[in-house]
Amino acid sequence: MREKKKIIAFCCENSSLKAAYAVTDQSILDAIEIIRLPCSGKAEIGLVLKCFENGHPGVLILGCPVDNCKYLTGNVRARKRVGMVKKALREAGIDENRVQMDFISSVDSHKFMNIVKEMEERLAPTAR
């Protein structure tokens, strides 16, 4: 049996990554594979699609709160890119909600946990 692929969480090092570090619930951390980014805007469309190609059930792109991007508009651009990924998923016949953009402040580990939990539960029946 193949190893179960995890949800990929692209985390901006200025916010959501710090929130992730503060998460104490190991089951949450076990459910995801964190990829550290200098900014959520670094999550390229092709890279996100590649995650799905490689069998990951879901992808989270977790950036800083809107208007609080270190690079000014990286997070807003990330949101637009996620829109393009959703379009590609629709075209491929895959549920577009397998990719999700969220904005998390560095101190909001609670929100981080909820987002992961929600996606994990949502994708559970179809996850291998």
């Binding site: 590649k50 190609e53 590609a88 491929a92 895959i94």
Partner: peptide
């Protein structure tokens, strides 16, 4: 190159689904 990657991934996902 980027667009090639995106289209290739989308098409692979589509093919897998179908």
């Amino acid at each position: 190159e980027k667009e090639v990657g995106i289209l290739a991934s989308t098409l692979r996902l589509f093919n897998k689904q179908n």
